[in-house]
Design a protein around this nucleic acid. Structure first.
Lengths: 171, 171
DNA sequence: GGCATAATACTCGGATAAAGCCTGTCCGAGTTACGTCGG
DNA sequence: CCGACGTAACTCGGACAGGCTTTATCCGAGTATTATGCC
C-alpha cells in the first residue's frame, strides 16, 4: 500500500493556497519553489486538482492558482481522490473464478466476500479522510507549529501572492 | 492509492487454508492451481506470510502450508501488513523543509500536521482491517455464497490437503 | 491627451523520456518418504 | 522379521529478467500586461 509522492505536495499546496487572501492567486512556480520540488512536475498534480474543481487556474502574467471554494468545504479525501484517482485501493481480480473448476456465471452472482470486507475497511478510511477539513489543517498549523515556521510561511505567501482586482502590480 | 495484486491472492489462500483440517497442510502448487495464478509467484507472497508468523511451512513430500494460529486470531490487517510491509501508505517527505528559507532544525521539532492527519485516517483504516477476522470471512462465505461454489471449494480442499500423521516439526 | 493596436512576457496545459517498483519466472538447497539391503 | 541406510522425489527459499505505473522534464498554446503609434 503506497500513496503517490504527489499527494503530499498537493496537500501542502492546498494548505498554502488556503492562506492567500480571497481572490488572490499564486503561480505554480512559487509553490514549487516553496517546497523545493520540480515546477514542471508539480503542475501535473495542480492540474489534477483543477480538473477536480478543487483549484482554479487563471492564465496570464498575473495568473496562478487559488482555491475554488472555501477551505471549510475541502477535505483531504477530495485531494487524495483527485491525485490518486477515484478507484479503490483494493481491486478484486475475481481470482476465485480462475481455478480449473468452471462453474456457471450464476454461481458468482454475489460479490466476493473478501472484496466486500476490504471495501468496508476502505470506506472507513475515506470517511476519516473526509472528516479532515483543510481549514482544520491550517488552524492546527497556525496554533501548534513553531512560530518561526508560521512567520516564514506567511511572509512567503504575502510576498508571492498576486492580487487580482487591483490593476497595478508593482515589481 | 493502490494495493498489490498479491494481497488478494494472499487473503484467498489464507481463507482456503482456514478450511483445511487442523494440522493438515496444502502445498503452494495446489493453492496456485485453485486460483489460476503462477505457482512460483504465489510462493513469494506465501513466503511473506510465513515470515510474518501467519502461516507455517513444512518441507518434504507431504509438506505444504497451514495457518500458524486459529483463524479467529488472524485479521486482514495482519495479511495486508505482511504482504505490503509495515510502512504507512502516506510517507511524509518533509517537503516543508525543502524551501529556500532555511530554518534551524528546532523549528521542525513538532511533526508535520498534514502527516499527523493522514496517519490518523490510516489508523482508522487499519483498525477497520483489524476488525475483519479471517474466521468471519470464512463463516460469511459458507453461509452467503452460492452452494455450488462452496461445494467446489470444499471438494478441492479435501482432495488436495495432506494430513500430517506425526506431530509436526516446527520450522 | 486619450484610445486602439500590436508586441511581449508570463502563465498554464499536454505530450514526451527515464527511473523505480511490482509482476512474473527460473533454478538451487533442504527435508521427508520410500525402497532396499543387511542383520 | 526388523532395523538402518541410501536413493529419490517433492517441497520451499532466494536470486534473476520484463512490464507497467510513477516520476521527472521539455516545449507549445493562450492571455493579460505594456509600450507605441495614431487620432
Amino acid at each position: 500500500m503506497r500513496l503517490s509522492e504527489g499527494v503530499e505536495a498537493a496537500i501542502h499546496c492546498a494548505a498554502t493556497l488556503a492562506g492567500v487572501d480571497g481572490g488572490a492567486t499564486m503561480p505554480g512556480s512559487a509553490l514549487a519553489e516553496q517546497f523545493g520540488v520540480s515546477p514542471s512536475y508539480l503542475l501535473k498534480h495542480l492540474n489534477a486538482l483543477t480538473a477536480a474543481r478543487i483549484l482554479e487556474s487563471l492564465p496570464g502574467p498575473a495568473g496562478g492558482y487559488r482555491l475554488a471554494r472555501p477551505a471549510e468545504r475541502i477535505s483531504l479525501l477530495d485531494i487524495v481522490l483527485a491525485v490518486e484517482g477515484p478507484q479503490p485501493a483494493f481491486r478484486c481480480g475475481e481470482i476465485r473464478q480462475g481455478g480449473p473448476v468452471k462453474l456457471p456465471a450464476s454461481a458468482y452472482a454475489k460479490p466476493c466476500g473478501i472484496n466486500a470486507a476490504m471495501l468496508r475497511a476502505e470506506r472507513a478510511y475515506r470517511a476519516a479522510l473526509a472528516a479532515e477539513k483543510l481549514s482544520d489543517i491550517v488552524s492546527e498549523y497556525l496554533t501548534d507549529a513553531d512560530p518561526r515556521s508560521v512567520a516564514a510561511s506567511c511572509a512567503f505567501i504575502a510576498q508571492r501572492q498576486r492580487p487580482q482586482k487591483p490593476p497595478s502590480t508593482k515589481r
